[in-house]
Structure formats: C-alpha cells, structure tokens
Design a protein around this nucleic acid. Structure first.
Lengths: 159, 159
DNA sequence: GCCTGTTGGTTGAAGCTACAAGTAAGACCG
DNA sequence: CGGTCTTACTTGTAGCTTCAACCAACAGGC
C-alpha cells in the first residue's frame, strides 16, 4: 500500500525538486564563467586550501567532497594537468596518494572565492530571512540524517 | 568588497550544498533499480501522463521539466527507442513536434510511481515534521524566486 | 616466507548533458 | 511573391560521471 503525499507535502517536494534541478546549474555557470571551474572542482580546491599543508589523501578528500574515488581521481588528474594540484605517494602508506594544492591552485581559489560566495548569498541566502536560514539548517540536517546516515559529510572531519 | 557568510548562514549553506550533491543520486538509484529510468526520464513520462491526450509539444514539455530543448530531444529519442513515447509532427504547426505517451509508457509510469513516491517520503518528507514541511515550501519558494525568476517551473502550466 | 583478503587508487568504456551549428517551417513586410 | 527574422527542433561533438575491471600495497594467519 502506498501512502500518497498531502497537498502541502507535494508543494514542498515539487519546489525542492525544482531547486535541485536548477540551483547546481546556476552555481556552475558563475564559476565556469569567472574562474573556469565547475562547482565540484572549486569545492575540491577549497577543501585542500583548508587542510594542513594544503594536502589531503585522496580517500579523505573524496569523503569531504562527497565524491566516489573514480570521480575524484579523474577530476584531480585534470586539475593536475592544469597545474592547480600536485599528487605524490603517501610516505606512511604506499597504497595511498596525497593531493596537494599548488601555489597556482591556491591563487585560483583565492580569486574565485569572493565571487562564488557573493553568488551563493545573492541566489540563496539573501532570498531568505534570518528565521528561514535557521529553519533551512534544521531541515537540511534532518534530510542528511536520512540520505547520509554515516554523516560522512557532516561529521567533524578527522585526518 | 565581499560580504562573507555568518556562521549560521554557512552551516545552512554547507548542508544545502550536501543535499544538492547527494539527493539526486539517491532518487536516481531507486528509479534506476526498480524501473530502469533516470529521475529525469521518469519526470518526463510523468508530465506526459498528466497532460490531455497524454500528449505535449516538445517546447512545453521542456518547460515543465526544466530541460533545454537539445537535452529533451535526446531523452525523448531514447524513450521512443524503448517504445515508451511516440513522436509525430504537430498538425497545427509544421515546425512543432508532439510527444505522446504510449500504452507501454503509461504502464511504466504507473508501475514506477508508488516506489518513487515512497522513496521521496522516506528520504525527505518523513525526515521532517509538519512545521518543517511548511517551512520548506516557503524557503524553496523564496529561492526559486531568485533562480527561476520567470517562474517557468512554478507557473500554472498553460497549454 | 606464503596465502588470502582488504584497502587505496587508477584506468577504460559507456552513457548523459551542454553547447554549437544546422534545418525547416511559420511570420512579417514591402 | 521574395526576403528576412524568428521559432521549434535535431544532430554532432566534447566533457564529465559512473561502472566495472584492474593493480599494487598492506595485514593477518599459518
């Protein structure tokens, strides 16, 4: 037996689905235009820029960016070809690879960040009042509790 | 000058970004497994199933599904290859193409819908209380006001 | 030291989306 | 009518993601 959605639930879902469909494109377009990066590439560089030594192991980087390992491997290879990232084997574990932000990569993130933040603010945050921002944090936390039960994304990052 | 995000804003944004990254995959996986459809393909079939005569012009269908025309053209061709949709030139306008759901396509949507709705309910709606569902409708409405100013998605569909 | 299994990562092929270009029909105008 | 513009699609190509192998390095038992 199927429990259908009530009118209120349906409205909320249809709109959320529309946001899911449209927002990534809006974010990608600005970053692609201003920094020649996809949102995911930007996020990879941003995670590296916040890490100690600007270095992370591929597995750890994949966890923080919600990526599969193959996806990350392809993306980092392309970023490496562009000179934004450097890869080298991990001294402690011969299986592991470290990815490190280069000077050029750091400069790229620094240059891209203000525009990206301004875009997020303009498209999302400024559309909401302070109360809604708090509500959004609660709602997304609840949803992530379902779709990311291990808390890979939200967990206090170790390593 | 850049206005950075406050802590509350940053938390809300990071979580929303995570939902944006993870939720589409969760929805796709279930539909792919149970009905061999992507979420977008399912949505195309669903829009057709609700239209009069189960028929829509490509342009109208593209608007309802938030797709570019090239993307829709490719997807409908694949659905046509699978016998779920039929295309024929519009009698009123020689430039236009009508897409119509076949019997097989209708059966496919009917079969897929309950599982999909159950998945949406399980992953999203049931994670929230009634108050949060209302809040989510308001929040997504506000965001769509920014990223979809023409209301293409939300407008009462004409035609 | 081997064997087995696990972990960490890379690679190649397949499929989907976006962008750019092209086609064809309608609309407007003299 | 002829010319030009717009609309409605389709098609081809490039780039990214996914999936399925694959390989190398570690770890534990014997």
């Amino acid at each position: 037996m199927t429990t259908w959605l009530t009118d209120e639930e349906r409205v909320a879902w249809v709109r959320l689905a529309a946001v899911l469909e449209l927002l990534p494109g809006v974010l990608d377009t600005q970053l692609r235009r201003d920094a020649d990066l996809s949102h995911f590439e930007y996020f990879v560089l941003a995670m590296l820029s916040e890490a100690p030594e600007r270095t992370l192991r591929m597995t750890s980087l994949a966890a923080r960016t919600n990526a599969t390992l193959p996806r990350l491997s392809h993306v980092v290879r392309r970023l490496e070809d562009r000179g934004l990232v450097r890869r080298f084997p991990c001294p402690q574990d011969g299986r592991a690879t470290n990815a490190q932000l280069t000077e050029s990569g750091w400069a790229t993130v620094e240059a891209a960040a203000p525009g990206h933040v301004a875009n997020v603010r303009h498209q999302v945050i400024d559309a909401l009042d302070a109360e809604q921002v708090r509500q959004l944090a609660g709602i997304t936390e609840a949803i992530l509790g379902r779709i990311d039960p291990d808390g890979v994304v939200m967990a206090p990052q170790r390593n």
